[in-house]
């Protein structure tokens, strides 16, 4: 597995991904542009939210798999990162739901005021 490269010619470098990276960056810019335009379009809200989330996720994946080389690295790196990502996402999801529940609604200012007035 550690067999040294038999093709030990001086020119054996990582193949350049220069143009590839430029293409990725262009795709990312275009997606960002689409996102900004999207929020101003008169389309159904649920559709825009879904589209925005999807587009962001696509951008996210492009960066981690290409710019961050996950695509070419050992799959363990991907697993490692996704452990954190999934736990963070899950925690966020749970927190938003807990705070979204009826039982968790904060006291409105009006209710607070009556609470204080009643003492007097």
């Amino acid at each position: 597995m550690s067999a040294p490269a038999t093709t030990a010619d001086a020119g054996h470098h990582e193949p350049s991904k220069f143009h590839f990276y430029i293409q990725i960056a262009m795709i990312l810019s275009v997606i960002t542009g689409v996102e900004v335009v999207l929020v101003y379009l008169p389309i159904a809200k649920w559709f825009v939210v879904t589209a925005l989330c999807t587009l962001s996720a696509v951008k996210f994946m492009f960066v981690i798999f290409f710019f961050m080389h996950l695509r070419w690295d050992k799959v363990f790196c991907t697993i490692l990162f996704f452990i954190g990502l999934v736990l963070a996402g899950g925690t966020m999801w749970a927190l938003l739901h807990i705070f979204g529940a009826d039982a968790s609604k904060p006291l409105s200012a009006a209710m607070l005021e009556t609470a204080h007035l009643a003492i007097a």
Partner: peptide
């Protein structure tokens, strides 16, 4: 470390969104 940082920003973004 980045996996750890995910949780870091996860907590911050949660705070904001909550």
């Amino acid at each position: 470390f980045l996996a750890s940082d995910c949780m870091f920003f996860g907590a911050l973004i949660s705070t904001h969104l909550v």
